[in-house]
Simulated assay, not measured.
Amino acid sequence: MANEPIISLRGVTKTYGSGATAFQALKGVDLDVAEGDFVAVMGPSGSGKSTAMNILGCLDVPTSGSFRFKGLPVESLDRDQRALLRRRYLGFVFQGFNLLARTDALENVELPLLYRGEDKATRRSKAMATLERVGLRDWWDHTPAELSGGQQQRVAIARALVTNPDVLLADEPTGNLDSATSAEIMALMTELHREGITILMVTHEADIAAYAQTVVHFLDGLVERVDANGVSA
Results as ranks from 00 to 15, higher is better:
residue 1 M to Y: 07
residue 4 E to C: 04
residue 5 P to C: 09
residue 5 P to T: 09
residue 5 P to W: 07
residue 5 P to E: 09
residue 7 I to D: 04
residue 7 I to M: 13
residue 8 S to D: 10
residue 14 K to M: 11
residue 15 T to S: 13
residue 15 T to R: 14
residue 19 G to P: 11
residue 21 T to D: 14
residue 22 A to H: 12
residue 24 Q to L: 12
residue 26 L to T: 09
residue 27 K to R: 15
residue 32 D to M: 06
residue 32 D to R: 07
residue 37 D to E: 15
residue 38 F to R: 04
residue 40 A to S: 13
residue 44 P to T: 12
residue 45 S to Q: 06
residue 46 G to R: 03
residue 47 S to Y: 07
residue 53 M to V: 12
residue 59 L to Y: 01
residue 60 D to V: 07
residue 60 D to S: 10
residue 61 V to I: 14
residue 68 R to T: 13
residue 69 F to S: 08
residue 70 K to I: 02
residue 70 K to N: 14
residue 76 S to R: 15
residue 78 D to N: 15
residue 82 R to E: 08
residue 83 A to R: 06
residue 84 L to R: 15
residue 85 L to I: 10
residue 87 R to W: 09
residue 87 R to H: 08
residue 88 R to A: 11
residue 92 F to M: 10
residue 94 F to T: 03
residue 96 G to A: 15
residue 102 R to I: 03
residue 106 L to I: 12
residue 107 E to L: 08
residue 107 E to S: 12
residue 108 N to P: 05
residue 108 N to G: 05
residue 109 V to A: 06
residue 111 L to E: 12
residue 111 L to T: 11
residue 112 P to Y: 03
residue 118 E to P: 04
residue 118 E to T: 11
residue 119 D to H: 11
residue 122 T to W: 05
residue 125 S to G: 12
residue 126 K to V: 10
residue 126 K to G: 01
residue 131 L to T: 05
residue 131 L to H: 09
residue 133 R to Q: 13
residue 134 V to H: 00
residue 135 G to T: 00
residue 136 L to I: 04
residue 140 W to V: 06
residue 141 D to W: 08
residue 143 T to M: 11
residue 145 A to C: 10
residue 147 L to F: 01
residue 149 G to M: 00
residue 149 G to P: 01
residue 151 Q to L: 00
residue 151 Q to E: 01
residue 154 R to W: 00
residue 154 R to S: 02
residue 157 I to M: 00
residue 157 I to F: 00
residue 159 R to K: 04
residue 159 R to C: 07
residue 162 V to N: 06
residue 163 T to F: 01
residue 168 L to D: 05
residue 168 L to M: 10
residue 172 E to Y: 02
residue 172 E to N: 03
residue 176 N to M: 03
residue 177 L to A: 00
residue 180 A to M: 00
residue 180 A to D: 00
residue 183 A to E: 10
residue 189 M to P: 05
residue 190 T to F: 02
residue 193 H to D: 06
residue 193 H to Y: 02
residue 196 G to E: 08
residue 199 I to Y: 07
residue 201 M to L: 13
residue 202 V to G: 02
residue 205 E to S: 14
residue 205 E to A: 13
residue 205 E to P: 04
residue 206 A to H: 12
residue 207 D to E: 14
residue 207 D to M: 05
residue 208 I to C: 02
residue 209 A to L: 09
residue 218 F to Y: 09
residue 223 V to W: 10
residue 223 V to M: 06
residue 225 R to K: 14
residue 226 V to W: 07
residue 231 V to W: 02
residue 233 A to R: 14
